[in-house]
Design a protein around this nucleic acid. Structure first.
Length: 422
DNA sequence: TCTGGGGTCCTAGGACCC
DNA sequence: TCTGGGGTCCTAGGACCC
């Protein structure tokens, strides 16, 4: 038995938790670079603002309705997330953190001594008490059904935010009401195809012959159908498997047209990616760089990527910057207004030296581990960027926009204003 | 003027081997 | 007239998730 617990309007709720004056007001949070809307409070949803819509298109609507707008503040959301997960881990024997705002809980054991619905309500009350955040709880035999139950808990307020869907008659009753595109694992493309086949509700999908699904779709959808029928195919993954790749990419605050500035950005992104790699205790052998212009702009599109395989796995920022810049030099073209770049690391090893190679012009550097550890320690201590490489540049005019950033209430207390004039 | 970022899994197709 | 079969590995691209 699984419970899916997720926070309502997570990013927006993190912002209002620290601003009681904003309760019951329409609040939205923007993506990086203040690009589009990624989170909305209930009041903002009621106005008809859409998730994913570009900010600049809706600015007028926001102004008319007095919508309060925030840039995303991941330092705050990450810390609030940890508080929610810690509470869950104290209440449930096994927890899988599925994303920044949701977790699956294993209810085996709990089921023997507690009423599940009542337990769900206790989770909800405790998290609210600890964090001021409100969660929805869905309970069922499979992850996909638990997701469905959670969906129902959010949609129908009279459930009080908790739905126990372990009863099969209730499962079928609910599935008949849920459009197939709302099922976990069914995206836009597959729901279109299913609807064209006359499969419109979750119940239609549940009752479709498994051989038919297998013939027209992949094993992924087959699993979803089995899970809707109560056959558990996806287990609880309490310990996250090691990552297979690490990506660092950002849109630029303003378009980049000259090579020097692009090189600065790529060096910085490479350094960030290398930092993440070391925090995962991994070494990589594959490094790639991509750059692209805006797909929405009227001017001709250019996007390209190229990768390079090293002879020896590394976690040294200098190696990674070198490789990323060599890749950039392969794909750079003058005369475009670039919107975004990124650096990807792959082909991971848990130890550095696989085998020393006679022909490696990029051989392991002496004292590399000590140098990297000094850099990481310094940079962790006082936010980011105390110590950096010359190639990353000083002015960094390509940095992303975050014009409506809230204070990092829980992690950098010095930033929090005592009183706010407004 | 202005449209996010970071991941995973699966499949098809090509290269290569015997 | 007629030109095999089976396997692995790798990569790119599609689809999905939050």
């Amino acid at each position: 038995m699984f419970a899916l617990v997720d926070v309502n309007s997570f990013y927006a709720s993190c912002e209002t938790a620290w601003r009681p004056d904003l309760r019951h007001k329409p609040v939205v949070v923007l993506s990086n670079n203040d690009g589009c809307v990624i989170a909305l409070s209930a009041e903002a949803k009621a106005i008809g603002i859409k998730r994913g819509a570009p900010y600049f298109e809706q600015r007028e609507l926001f102004r008319r309705h007095g919508v309060v707008v925030f840039s995303s503040n991941y330092a705050l959301y990450g810390d609030m997330s940890q508080r929610v997960m810690t509470t869950l881990e104290a209440m449930c024997p096994r927890v899988e953190i599925y994303s920044i705002d949701e977790a699956f809980c294993d209810l085996i054991g709990v089921r023997n001594c507690r009423d599940l619905d009542e337990f769900g309500r206790e989770i909800r009350a405790t998290i609210r008490q600890h964090t001021l955040l409100t969660v929805g709880v869905g309970i069922a035999q499979t992850k996909t059904l638990a997701k469905l139950a959670n969906h129902a808990a959010k949609k129908w307020t009279k459930t009080g935010g908790v739905v126990d869907l372990s009863n099969q008659t209730r499962q079928r009753k609910l599935m008949a009401l849920v459009p197939v595109e709302d099922v976990w694992g069914i995206g836009r493309r597959i729901s279109k195809k299913l609807e064209a086949m006359g499969i419109k509700t979750a119940l239609d999908l549940c009752d479709t012959d498994i051989r038919f699904i297998r013939k027209h779709f992949s094993v992924v959808l087959e699993r979803t159908v089995r899970e809707l029928r109560g056959e558990s195919c996806l287990g609880l993954e309490e310990f996250a498997p090691a990552k297979q790749e690490i990506i660092y990419s950002r849109s630029f605050g303003e378009r980049v047209s000259d090579y020097q500035r692009m090189r600065e950005a790529v060096c910085s992104y490479a350094a960030r990616a290398a930092e993440k790699l070391r925090s995962e205790h991994q070494y990589c052998r594959y490094i790639s760089t991509f750059i692209k212009t805006s797909p929405y702009a009227a001017d001709p599109f250019y996007g390209n990527s190229v990768g390079q395989r090293l002879l020896t796995p590394t976690q040294d920022t200098r190696d990674i910057i070198n490789a990323a810049v060599r890749c950039l030099d392969h794909i750079w073209r003058d005369g475009f207004r670039y919107q975004k770049a990124g650096v990807m690391l792959g082909d991971f090893f848990s130890q550095g030296v696989a085998q020393l190679n006679l022909f490696d012009d990029n051989a392991p550097k002496p004292n590399s581990a000590a140098l990297m550890s000094v850099m990481d320690t310094l940079n962790m201590k006082d936010g980011k960027g105390t110590l950096y490489f010359a190639g990353q540049g000083i002015t960094q005019s390509w940095q992303m926009r975050r014009e409506m950033l809230s204070p990092c209430y829980t992690t950098h207390l010095a930033d929090v204003p005592v009183a706010r004039a407004n």
